[in-house]
Design a binder for these strands. Structure first.
Lengths: 205, 205
DNA sequence: TGAAAACTTTACCAAACGGTCAGTTTGAGG
DNA sequence: CCTCAAACTGACCGTTTGGTAAAGTTTTCA
């Protein structure tokens, strides 16, 4: 009864599951869940369609696996905010970490964006549960810092939203950013400076 | 030769085209181009599938029609920035106008987000053409104001990006915003205050 | 080495999809 | 009221899609 029904993965399973998830991430993040086809994922993975379905029972299962794995990566920086650190350093560190996530994992950012755009049907209680709790904790820390006069007071929920919006924009709207800037720009490098200044101006007491 | 090949629309044509576009906007903005089906659009419009295709030759044509119409609405506020106005008022006015657009036309915002997420395949030269020119003009105005010391100097392209990111976030990530805030909040009302303060702090000389 | 387990493939569904067509109904103008 | 174009429909078609069945191949390990 208490068996975990988790047969250990063989070497081949491990490798092929990774290959499939890697390929699926690219496909899902450029076409969305409904726009992606198993054929395309199989193609990108260099496997046959039935072989892909040998490792994951359905397209949805691949998607859900990606989304679940993504969440931890995605929320990690917020957990890293140290309530005993210097407020300004902590906030700017969080902004920088989130921006780096957008730079290094743009596919994950876009996958998440697709999901939320749709109304987050696969994130059921998570947004209003785990995510909300995490935000509430951070909000409490921010409010303490503001009450102590170590940050200028602003609405902390919206401060968090603005960090998310500003950093993810560079991944999700990458095409637009690059088209508008034209060649010879490094959006992320410029954004790093811009955003540090922005939050400094807004929050430095 | 110079005939415009534009047969005038009958009353019924006008009405049904509008109904279809209205229904399609809802469907496209919640499922994306590929996730939407003509059947679903027809259903939402209360028309039969062949009848929908009587008014628009294909799904793509409906989509392109929506996207084109959307662009004008979308870019209008930027055209409204008055280079002879008070810099701070103009910038804050633009922010407020964009936020209102997100509040009043969230479906349009999400449709646009889907398109750009995909790499904007239907916006071919527009992002790097018309949009870029428009931004370049605005950037010039902003730079002048900054040079005159009427705004604190920041990188103007990224200032524009940040306005887009912050305002559209409330439409595109609506589900997340509401889930995190919990009930009893008016995200847009709060955002209005928050964003005004943000840009004031960042830009007021 | 040999047999079981793990892996892969070919061939194939049934459903959903974008779109067509032949013909019927509707309604505006004379 | 009649006529005819405009508006509409049901039946259909070829393709794509998610997924399965069954048989073949490779790997593992006793």
């Amino acid at each position: 009864m208490t068996e975990d029904s988790k047969p250990p993965l063989t070497r081949i399973q491990q490798k092929n599951r990774d290959i499939i998830l890697e390929a699926a991430l690219t496909v899902f993040s450029t076409r969305g869940l409904r726009g992606a086809t198993i054929d395309r994922i199989a193609d990108a993975a260099g496997l046959s369609k039935p072989n892909v379905l040998y490792y994951f029972g359905s397209k949805d299962e691949i998607y859900r696996t990606l989304l679940t794995a993504l969440l931890d990566t995605w929320l990690a920086p917020m957990l890293n905010i140290d309530s005993n650190g210097q407020p300004m350093d902590e906030v700017l560190g969080y902004v920088a970490a989130k921006l780096q996530l957008s730079r290094d994992y743009p596919r994950e950012s876009r996958l998440f964006a697709y999901e939320v755009l749709q109304g987050a049907p696969h994130l059921e209680g998570i947004l209003g549960g785990r995510l909300r709790d995490l935000v509430e904790n951070t909000v409490a820390v921010l409010e303490r810092w503001m009450a102590q006069g170590r940050l200028k007071p602003v609405e902390p929920h919206h401060l968090i939203f603005s960090i998310w919006a500003l950093t993810q924009h560079y991944a999700d709207f990458d095409v637009q950013v690059r088209a508008v800037l034209g060649p010879g720009h490094d959006p992320y490098a410029e954004a790093e400076l811009y955003l540090e200044n922005l939050f400094r101006q807004m929050l430095e007491p």
